[in-house]
């Protein structure tokens, strides 16, 4: 199991995957918006997205949980 956490304060601009999706290492899970940049959040291992903790429009703080990959 791997928890994917926000590396910075940001708005959630796009949610690319859904719970239950299979993802590969390096796939984009969500796209954040911060520092006037679109910042993809990537899977750091292959597996299934078992939990998605954010929705489009949310504000995440540094270290907030974004998704869990099993």
């Amino acid at each position: 199991m791997a928890e994917v956490r926000a590396e910075m304060v940001a708005n959630v601009w796009r949610v690319v995957v859904a719970e239950g999706d299979h993802v590969e290492d390096g796939d984009t899970l969500v796209i954040l918006e911060s520092m006037k940049m679109e910042i993809p959040v990537l899977a750091e291992q292959s597996g299934t997205v078992s939990k998605l903790h954010v929705a489009e429009g949310d504000v995440v703080q540094e270290d907030d949980l974004i998704a869990v990959i099993d």
């Binding site: 590396e7 910075m8 911060s34 520092m35 940049m37 679109e38 910042i39 993809p40 990537l42």
Partner: peptide, 8 residues
């Protein structure tokens, strides 16, 4: 690398 942390 703009792909990570926007390149910050």
């Amino acid at each position: 690398n703009p792909m990570r942390l926007g390149g910050c």
